[in-house]
Design a protein around this nucleic acid. Structure first.
Length: 426
RNA sequence: GGAGGAGUGGCCGAGUGGCUAAAGGCGGCGCCCUGCUAAGGCGUUGGGUGGAAACACCCACCAGGGUUCGAAUCCCUGCUCCUCCGCCA
């Protein structure tokens, strides 16, 4: 969440920055937060004065009793003070709840580098490789997958529902090979610590990373235990250090995890529904970094390069785009998306999203570090990026490496993991 | 699931109703001492409100309620961890 002190000291600047997101709700949320904060400090002043009196008098009572002197009239007087404190405390906790609930709904400030505009008005930052020109024999991945026996969407729909694909045979193997390849790359070449986290998380964790309270409808929730299926490994990884004070010398910390990702995609019904383009469950290897605030810009470039390296090793042409303010995620300050070209569906597919959350998640989740110079705890910056997301990477691989005879060649880097060089119709 | 035990500051660990915000130790940071290192000395080491600052006050002993003029300390509920038993991949 954002810092109430910034909102208090420079509300105009804060509001101007937030309004770049073009979210109609923001202004009234900001007003509510400022008012709740004002009321909170007002009440705090009154209740603290009363508590000071109570503390002083109680000490006096203790001293008198020790000396064997009577203190009855002080004790009687304090009864009404205690009553008034109870009243103020009750009011105060209501106001604090209101403040907290409001702040939790206010999105992060966009980084100044983020361009203005809504969805589609991104900046292309970098391009790698040359997308293969379309040819007559191009087919979408659901055709390729079914003729090569890799993919079974109908049976997935039968056993779970639409959007829960089944991979079979070489398709399942290829999927697993990709996961293994990515984990090995990030751990051995880029120094990430591999983590195998829980695939379900509690409410506090989802609140820490920003999915709750605003986006509960997008999550799969398990009913008796109130646990949520992870929408991304970002949630368990970032929450590894929730409510902790890290040693500043340990920064940056870098973690990588494979998890399946579960997304209800509420409100996205009908969009990109064919094949594997938008599904309720997919596999992903996720990178998370905890950094010093001064270092987070450089760390984002580094992390994005790690994700890009995956695509380069897989020989998949891609572009890096910088998302505009209107298309930025709730908790994100700046986001690069990596998109690969997929000739079968003739589209750029988002396979990675690399972001800095500045101190927004850290403040929600209480992730701090002790600064060497000041000795004071301060919030870290959290970053994460897909490194990379699977279903769509598999799509791009199949569609872009398919040859006229219907076979698909496996990129060199993946061959040791796949155990085969080519997929052919048997 | 059943039976016990335990949760104190960055860490370890005292403390059972009032000079205890918390002894003692470790670690971190600052200063002093010092040819260098080690040792030693002093201070500091959670959050909030007000203040330019010095500083003042409030809160904070797992969490939330309660008793009391006053709670780390007493009562209730919850959570987590540990031990034993049962079940189980």
């Amino acid at each position: 969440m954002i810092d109430i002190r910034y909102l208090r000291t420079d509300p105009d600047a804060a509001l101007a920055a937030l309004e770049r997101r073009a979210d109609a709700e923001i202004e009234s949320l900001v007003d509510r937060a400022i008012e709740a904060d004002r009321r909170r400090r007002e009440l705090l002043g009154e209740v603290e004065a009363l508590k000071q009196r109570r503390n002083e008098t109680s000490r006096e009572i203790g001293e008198r009793k020790q000396r064997g002197e009577p203190a009855d009239e002080l004790m009687t007087a304090m009864k009404s003070v205690a009553e008034r404190i109870r009243g103020f405390d009750g009011e105060l906790s209501l106001v604090e709840e209101e403040l907290q609930a409001t702040l939790l709904q206010i999105p992060n400030f966009p980084d100044p580098r983020v361009p203005a505009g809504g969805e589609g008005e991104f900046e292309i930052v970098a391009e790698w490789g040359t997308p293969r020109p379309a040819v007559e024999s191009d087919e979408p991945h659901w055709e390729i997958g079914s003729s090569l026996g890799l993919l079974d969407l109908e049976r997935g729909a039968k056993i779970a529902g639409s959007g829960f694909p089944v991979l079979t045979g070489a398709g399942a193997r290829l999927n697993r090979a990709l996961i293994q390849f990515m984990l090995d790359l990030h751990t051995t070449e880029f120094g990430y610590l591999e983590v195998a986290p829980p695939f379900v998380v509690n409410r506090e964790s989802l609140q820490g990373t920003g999915q709750l309270p605003k986006f509960e409808d997008d999550q799969y929730r398990t009913v008796p235990d109130d646990l949520f299926l992870v929408p991304t490994a970002e949630v368990p990884l970032t929450n590894l250090h929730r409510d902790e004070i890290l040693d500043g010398l340990d920064l940056p910390l870098a973690y990588v995890a494979y998890t399946p990702c579960f997304r209800r995609e509420a409100g996205a019904a009908g969009r990109d529904t064919r094949g594997l383009l938008r599904v309720h469950q997919f596999d992903k290897v996720e990178l998370v970094r905890f950094t010093h605030p001064d270092d987070s810009s450089d760390q984002l470039e580094l992390l994005t390069r790690h994700a890009e390296t995956v695509l380069e090793r897989l020989e998949l042409p891609y572009r890096r785009i910088l998302l505009p303010a209107g298309d930025l995620g709730f908790a994100n300050a700046i986001t690069y998306d990596l998109e690969v070209w997929s000739p079968g569906v003739e589209r750029w597919l988002e396979v990675s999203s690399c972001s800095s959350y500045t101190d927004f998640q850290a403040r929600r989740a209480g992730i701090r570090f002790r600064d060497q110079d000041s000795g004071k705890p301060q919030f870290v910056h959290t970053l994460n990026g897909s490194g990379v997301a699977l279903a769509r990477t598999l799509v791009a691989l199949l569609e872009s490496r398919r040859e006229a005879d219907g076979s698909v060649s496996i990129p060199d880097a993946l061959r040791p993991y796949a155990g085969f060089d080519r997929l052919s119709v048997s």
